[in-house]
Design a protein around this nucleic acid. Structure first.
Lengths: 214, 214
DNA sequence: GTGTGTGAAATTCTTCACAGCG
DNA sequence: CGCTGTGAAGAATTTCACACAC
């Protein structure tokens, strides 16, 4: 059976899933599409449609059981599988991500950190095992790492990505300010460029002024 | 005159804009839609269409002049306007963003950092002026800050965002693992939740297996 | 009243196809 | 040949509208 969920819906569902985890932890038992929508910034009918792509689960007239909906999304989206992750590039940003607390309990344990600068491996204060960058391929294989987080300088992005992919990683979140080329049939990549985010916001702001002349 | 650019196209154009800046710096004079597409991971016709939303600029048969195209995008998207930014939350992630080198020359200078913990303001090593969180509203007003970067714990997200908005910020990049509610007619917000990114990749990976059973 | 589920309509976005240029 | 520009076609996504349940 093939699950046919539009891409934007799938991303929203991941957000909903994370929200449900919080609501469950807070002891909330039931939630409506309206309420979910208000929290994550979407319309209620969008949320209902998204959830409905995964099959019927709510109770008409009385919203969703938080635990049941969370487990349903987890199951249908295959999120019950835990995956090992690693961080490549242990500058300030990479180190911050390596020690990022919200990872704990998320199912995406960071099991390795890499940097080409040996000094950084020795001075870092963390319980995560650290390795020199030239061992990426081997360590990724040995530790069965499926997700990579890239936080290297622009100039190192392509090589670091190549090594991760060679080691067998299935997904990469790229925080470096450069893109890299890859075989999109083999791996999923998300590019997060902080400057680009500010640029996009800036464009929205400029374009939102009615008197902006062209 | 209203510029009618689809949202995904606008985001891609910001990526193209950043790429052109690099190409110009490298001394590249001309570039084709095919080449841009290969680098940023899109089809050539998509790139041509995106650029074309901003009006004619290329030379048929010989690609785009890098400088001219960059300036054109900058002008049409209102990116020539420099905007002051600030970082709220100076934990590891916030500090890393505060000192993030790629900001220099990007036009989005970080002119202030905030934290509710006074100790963090004193121990941080940076040339960016730091302030206690209760001064957000005033400092944002005084320094004419238009963009805010949120890197606070989940529990502090709503209040920090409220203060930024009260101070007059027009856009927020939210790196905190919680969402907050806001008046979407007044401000633009981008949520970047690192755990959500890994979750989404994980879902793609799971769903890409043909034998994934439901 | 407030809710969900869902096919159909509407909209947005992408891809195609090709004219015309170097 | 490869290149851009662009209207038209096509696909993807969102929104609507309403049946039905609490």
């Amino acid at each position: 059976m093939k699950l046919n969920v539009p891409n934007p819906a799938l991303v929203r569902l991941c957000t909903v899933y994370r929200l449900l985890d919080k609501l469950v932890a807070e002891g909330v038992l039931r939630v409506s599409s309206t309420r979910i929508g208000r929290i994550i910034g979407a319309e209620a009918h969008t949320i209902r449609k998204d959830i409905n792509y995964l099959g019927e689960i709510g109770e008409i007239g009385s919203g969703y059981d938080t635990v049941r909906l969370r487990d349903h999304i987890r199951y249908r989206l295959g999120l019950d599988k835990k995956r090992n992750s690693c961080v490549v590039g242990l500058g300030r940003l990479g180190s911050a991500i390596l020690m990022y607390e919200p990872f704990s309990g998320s199912g995406y344990t960071i099991v390795a950190g890499f940097d080409s600068n040996i000094n950084k491996l020795e001075t870092a204060i963390t319980s995560v095992p650290l390795f020199p960058a030239h061992e990426i391929v081997d360590v990724v294989r040995e530790k069965n790492i499926e997700l990579g987080i890239l936080a290297v300088p622009a100039s190192a992005a392509q090589e670091a990505a190549d090594r991760l992919i060679e080691g067998g990683v299935r997904g990469i979140v790229n925080f470096s300010p450069a893109m890299f080329s890859y075989d999109s049939s083999k791996i999923y990549v998300t590019h997060i460029d902080i400057v680009r985010e500010l640029t996009a916001l800036s464009a929205y702001i400029s374009l939102s002024f009615d008197n902006f002349k062209h």
